[in-house]
Each structure stands twice: as C-alpha cells, then as structure tokens.
C-alpha cells in the first residue's frame, strides 16, 4: 500500500476544521460567570413537575383534539401542494427526459438552482413574507409550507430518480420504450417506494412546522401551546405536546405500513 499523509486527505482536513471550530466556540464562553440562568433551575423543575399534573379534563382534551385537526389540515394541504410542485420539478431536475447534453445541462442547472432558492429560505421566513403580502390567513401558512418543502422534495426526488439501477431501464429501451415510457414504466416504478417514504418523513416535518406556525396567527397545536405557556399552565402544555408526539408516531406507523406494502 502506498503511504499517504493523512492530514492531506479531505476527510482529515475536515475533521481538523471542525475540531478547530469547536475549540474556538468554547473559547468564546464566559466560564467565570454563571453558565445557567439563576432562575432557570426553578422554572425547569416547575415545568417537569407538571408532568405529574397533566391536564386531562374532557373539555381540554376536546380543545387539544381540535387543535390537532387544524395542524394536520395545514400540514396535509401544505405537503400536497409541495408534492404537486416537487414531483414535476424533480423529474425535470433529474435530467432523465432530456436527450442531448446541450439541453440537459442548462435545464438541470436552472431547475436545481430554482429548487435551491426555494428551500434555502426557512418556512417561518416564507410565512412572515406571505403574512406581509396577503395578511394573516391559512393560505399564508399553507404556501409558506409548500414552497420550501416543494424545493426539498424536488431535490430529493431528482436524486432518487437518478439513483435507480440502469440495467432494467436499458432493457426497457431495448424493448422499444421511449424515454417517457422508460420514466413511467421503469424509473418511477423503482423510485416510488423511496420517494414515498421520504415524502412521509417530510409530512412529519410539515406537522411540526404547521404546529409552530402559530406565530403568524393560525390556529393549531402551537397556538394552544403558546396560550398555555403564557398562562404558565404547564399541565396543559404537556397534554398538547403529547398530542403532537402521538401525531408523529401515528404518521410514522402509517408510513411503515404503506412502505411495507410497496417494498417486497
């Protein structure tokens, strides 16, 4: 084997950089002063203490359930629109339909660039922009979810489509299939299980994001959490958090069931 200086390898260099960054950030901490806010321990104790005092009155459970429905509704609308945006853009960005590299390169670079712009802005920033533009409305929250999520889905879809094994596609072509037919009959068919499981994961993210969209004023779990926090009713906060966890677990198991049926 050829001996190579380890520090010249990119991985070694990256490690060095990261360790350096950590050391630098530690040097910025004021070690002499108190590290934790003095009243923090008391607040934390109070918050976790409320675990034994979770609010379970029927009227509050009904309120939490209603908040869940709102959050899920926004997440479903947002992710649906995101898939509708991401699927065609992802197919275009994969460059699989273009025949010549002359067409492919500008189309792929252009689409990827557009997707990068949409997802480099966080959904909360989009929400702020849309609220400024069209006012506080469910539409603002849904669009704020759909645009960055569409960008993320498009990017991932294009990569999944590109990573499909080539051999079956080659024999579809040999059987006389056009590029569109290869896409529909081979590429998408093989990519769909992975695309679906990633979309489900994004749906989970959309639920979390929809929950904290409360700051633009839309109803939902986040809004209720904010109200209960303001009143220091930690028991209610726990109830709402448990509902959020239950939602995520539910979506997760749903995705497992669907994926198991698709992947043999």
């Amino acid at each position: 084997m050829r001996a190579r200086p380890v520090f010249l390898e990119s991985r070694g260099l990256l490690t060095l950089l990261l360790v350096g960054a950590l050391a630098w950030s530690l040097s910025a901490v004021d070690w002499k002063g108190p590290l934790v806010h003095t009243g923090g321990a008391g607040s934390a104790l109070e918050f976790f203490g409320a675990l034994g005092n979770i609010e379970l009155s029927p009227s509050f459970l009904k309120l939490a359930l209603e908040a869940c429905l709102y959050t899920v509704a926004y997440a479903v609308a947002g992710i649906t629109l995101a898939i509708a945006l991401g699927l065609p853009l992802g197919i275009i960005a994969s460059g699989t339909l273009a025949r010549s590299t002359k067409v492919r390169t500008p189309v792929v670079v252009g689409t990827r660039g557009f997707l990068a712009v949409t997802r480099s802005i966080h959904e909360l920033v989009w929400a702020w922009l849309f609220v400024a533009a069209i006012g506080i409305s469910p539409m603002a929250a849904i669009l704020a979810l759909a645009i960055p999520y569409g960008g993320i889905l498009g990017r991932i879809y294009s990569e999944i489509l590109n990573d499909v094994p080539e051999a079956p596609l080659r024999s579809l072509r040999a059987s006389g299939a056009s590029e569109w037919q290869v896409l529909l009959y081979g590429r998408l068919v093989m990519a769909i299980p992975d695309m679906l499981s990633y979309s489900f994961y994004r749906f989970e993210c959309a639920i979390r994001a929809a929950a904290i969209m409360s700051f633009v004023g839309i109803a939902g779990l986040g809004y209720q959490i904010q109200l209960s926090l303001d009143d220091l009713l930690y028991g209610q906060v726990w109830t709402l958090l448990l509902f959020l966890v239950a939602l995520i677990v539910l979506v997760d198991s749903w995705s497992t069931v669907v994926r198991r049926r698709l992947v043999a």
Binding site: P168, L172, S175, G176, A177, Q181, L184
Partner: peptide, 28 residues
C-alpha cells in the same frame, strides 16, 4: 440478470415487450 423491473408484476414485465407499440398514455 438485473434485466427486469423488480417492483412490477411478472405480467407487467412481460408486457414491457409491447412498449414499442404503445404510446406514452397507453403505457400509463
């Protein structure tokens, strides 16, 4: 080997031999 689309049914893989005769919509 690695010649067929593993996710499709046997019938669909056999019918891929007809793709040259079908249009894109027909394939869908």
């Amino acid at each position: 080997q690695f010649d067929l689309v593993p996710h499709l049914s046997v019938m669909h893989n056999v019918m891929a031999g007809r793709l040259g005769q079908w249009g894109t919509l027909g394939c869908l």
